[in-house]
Structures are given as C-alpha cells and as structure tokens.
Write a protein that binds this DNA or RNA. Sequence first.
DNA 1: TCATAAGTCTACTTTAAATATAGGTTAAAC
DNA 2: GTTTAACCTATATTTAAAGTAGACTTATGA
Lengths: 153, 153
Amino acid sequence: MISMRSKYALKALSYMARSSDKESFLIADVAVAENIPKKFLEAILLTLKNNGILSSRKGPGGGYSLAKAPASLTVGAIVRSFEGDLAPVQCLSVSAHSTCPECLDEDTCGIKLVMADVSSAVSAVLDTVTVADMLQRSEFERQKREKVVDFAI
Amino acid sequence: MISMRSKYALKALSYMARSSDKESFLIADVAVAENIPKKFLEAILLTLKNNGILSSRKGPGGGYSLAKAPASLTVGAIVRSFEGDLAPVQCLSVSAHSTCPECLDEDTCGIKLVMADVSSAVSAVLDTVTVADMLQRSEFERQKREKVVDFAI
DNA sequence: TCATAAGTCTACTTTAAATATAGGTTAAAC
DNA sequence: GTTTAACCTATATTTAAAGTAGACTTATGA
C-alpha cells in the first residue's frame, strides 16, 4: 500500500498538469479542488519542491508550479519522494543501505534475490509512466464511460 | 517493505524445504535454526497452516510439515498469507474490496489504472517463483562464492 | 490413566509510523 | 507597512507491527 501522502501528491500534480492554462497554483485552491486536508497538502507540496518536482514563489501572486513538463514527470519520481526507494526489503535499499537486521547471510539470501526481481518489476512500471500518461489514461476511461451513457440514451 | 512475518515465514519454509530428510519440524527447532523469536514464529506457522501451506500434528512426535512440495509452493502464496492481496491501493484489493476513502471517481482514477499495472507486475514475479526456486538460486550464489574463495587460495 | 510433549488460543505490551492539526515565521508584492 | 502566501516547528491521534505471557488442548506412550 502506498501512503496517503503519495496519493495526495499524485492527485495534486495531476490537477496542476490538467489545468495547464494556469501557471501557478495556491495550496488552498488545490486542497479544495482535490479534497485534500490543506495543512497536510502544505507539507506534501513542500516535499515535492525539495525533490525538484515543484517550484514555488512566496507572496501575492505566488504559489506552486510544476518544475517540469507532465510528460517528463514520472510517477516513480513522485512516489519515491514519499516512500523512499521502493525496496521490498531493507537490504535492497540503495539510499539508507543497511542489511536486514535478521539476516544471517546477505550474499546468498534467497529472499533478497527474489525481492530484487520484484523491485525491478515495480520500477519498470513506475519509471515509465508519467503524469501525462496518467491523465491520458484517465481521460480515455472518462470518454469510454460517456460513450456508454450516450448509447444508453 | 514486506513485514517481518513474511520474511520469517519464507525463512522457516525454506529451512523445512532444505531439510527434506526430516518429515516433521518442531517450532522450537525452526526458531533456533533460523534465529526467529519462538513465540512469534508460533503465530506465523499457525497462519501458514490456516492458509493450507503447512500441516501439523500435536503431541509427542508431532510438529509441522510442508503441505505441498517446495516446487509447487509459490512465494506469492506465502507472502499473501500475511500481506493480504498485494494491492498498492485499497480500491484494487480483491478480498476486502473497498474504495479508497479519498477517491472522488474510482472509474477514471489514474492512480488506480497505474497501480493496477504495478500490482500485475508484482504478482507476475511472486506467483512464478517457488520456494524450490528460491533455494536453488540461493545455493547457486553460495557456490559462486565458494569458487571465488577457491580461486583466491 | 497419567505425565509429558507439542501445537493452539487469548490477551496484552511496546514501539514506531502515518495522518493529520495548530500556530507562528519569513519573503515578496503593492 | 500591510497583506498575501509559502515555510517551519511542534504536537496530537490513531493504527499497525512486533513481540511476550500464560493458560488450554490434543496426542502419545509408559
């Protein structure tokens, strides 16, 4: 399970990408639009900024903006901002690289070998899909639904 | 991150599969051999039994045994015994199927669409790899290391 | 049939992390 | 120099994981 932080971040960024007419977004507006607790979102957007995903300006007329185009912003980069590297076991964590506390022989640990495959599989998906892709797929589903409704009428 | 429960379960089952000369194993012995807190392992093996992965007999001469051959026991089945279905978001959980509490429109949710791909990727790995595979890969790594040592001497 | 071996069950504790909330601080615009 | 809006610090609440304690049940075999 990914955290609420990650989900809120994905929603907030999707919202910004979708409303590409605006260049800058207020925390409060995003919070209302996406139904996210404002104070919580505040911390989330700050994390995204510290990870180079958003940029910000203080004061009147300020707000947050996307630091890169939706098509070059991967879901992996966003999720990793909150979940750390997505290692299924500690010993596979590249950042805080530590051995699993219970492990007796890391080199030959079968769990590690299997989980390395899992980790690769997850990364292959998340590092490929961008926010732009997500929006597009979402829009595709919406249109599919519209059609079904039209058909019913 | 998978839980300690899952890791302990994988270790315990690997141990049993590896020691295929014995037919039955005492909790206490497995706990010592794999360095797992005995009382905790107790609960874990019970869960595995309730999931059809182990069978047991009480009383003198009793103990736990594998309910199926290591080659037909998938890592996925084991891990799912403790982590539930491995849904990255609630709305993808098949068992306790509930919508994500914060979701406004599940049908067109981009997060759900992307995470469904992640989920498939994870399952593809975990439902393919068996305990027998894990042991084999582990043994392969051990032998690789031996060779390096021989070479050094 | 009784002592012992071994799994089973219930309940609890402890610790850590996720999810928030409150309120004050700094920077920029006008 | 007042207002706007991001930024920062601290704290509360809730939940789950990890582990422990102790009593109960079932089976064996002397």
